[in-house]
């Protein structure tokens, strides 16, 4: 009955703990992926419909009138922006709702009583957010290909920026869920912070259209760097320096990851 792994020696403990955490991480990732599939009507369908509408209205109908932006056809200009916008909203949305419902319905306790490290729990949820974001991104890209041809100028930059952005917003979703006590708390940040930053973050326009003062203000928006970093990866054109984009994303990643770890360790919002 008692064949429980007993970390006896210090070295043995390290080793078996690593194994436990690896299996645990895989388990959380599987579970999150299953959740995305199980409720695909909520997780995959809505963003795809929204993005298709954007492509039709802005890309095709209005885009024809606009012509070019930064030297590229408008449809091609907004395609990376819209892909990035779906990555941001879906990574955030996935983690915030998955973690918050686990907390609200108490089954988060399944993980809290287990020997998993907080890092494993954080990474597991982040992986879930990335899975959802990337699934949506792939479909949105496929939709975009109906309307235009997309080339990828710098594949490594494109992929790394999109993955890092998904991580950052998954972490943000996790932190939001940690603090949330009721369903309203889950929508405050996306509505009042995330949406404005995204819409003003260069998804639809180049900041060169703004007056010099507003250009300066726009540069304070971290989303701008992510969207433009990604656009640079795909089109080779950008409003900003790609190194700055990486630096900003990495800083956000480190700060948000540390914050999430500290909050879980202290038990903020999850332990009395």
């Amino acid at each position: 009955m008692t064949e429980t792994t007993l970390p006896v020696t210090k070295g043995g403990a390290q080793q078996s703990l690593l194994r436990i955490n690896l299996i645990g991480l895989l388990t959380i990732v599987r579970k999150e992926a299953h959740r995305v599939r199980r409720i695909w009507v909520q997780t995959i369908v809505p963003p795809v419909i929204t993005m298709t509408l954007y492509f039709v209205i802005f890309g095709t109908l209005i885009g024809r009138r606009i012509g070019e932006m930064d030297g590229v056809p408008y449809m091609n200009y907004i395609a990376p922006g819209l892909i990035m916008m779906s990555v941001i909203t879906n990574s955030f949305g996935n983690v915030v709702s998955s973690f918050f419902s686990a907390k609200l319905q108490l089954f988060l306790e399944e993980m809290l009583v287990s020997p998993l490290s907080y890092a494993t729990i954080v990474l597991g949820f982040v992986a879930g957010g990335m899975i959802r974001a990337m699934s949506v991104a792939v479909i949105v890209t496929a939709v975009a290909l109906f309307f235009t041809n997309l080339d990828v100028a710098h594949p490594f930059i494109t992929l790394s920026i999109i993955l890092l952005t998904a991580m950052v917003f998954s972490l943000a979703g996790l932190i939001n869920a940690i603090f949330a006590n009721k369903f309203d708390d889950v929508s405050i940040f996306p509505t009042f912070v995330l949406a404005p930053l995204t819409y003003l973050g260069g998804v639809f326009f180049s900041i060169s259209l703004l007056s010099p003062v507003w250009q300066k203000v726009a540069l304070l928006n971290p989303v701008l760097y992510m969207v433009n970093g990604f656009r640079y990866g795909m089109l080779g054109v950008s409003d900003i320096d790609i190194r700055v984009a990486y630096a900003i994303i990495l800083v956000f990643f480190v700060v948000l990851f540390t914050t999430a770890m500290v909050l879980l360790k202290r038990g903020t919002g999850i332990r009395h």
Partner: peptide, 14 residues
């Protein structure tokens, strides 16, 4: 079944 398999996973049981 899934609930139990997942819980086992959190304790490192393959």
């Amino acid at each position: 079944r899934r609930i139990l398999i997942n819980q086992a996973g959190y304790y490192g049981v393959p």
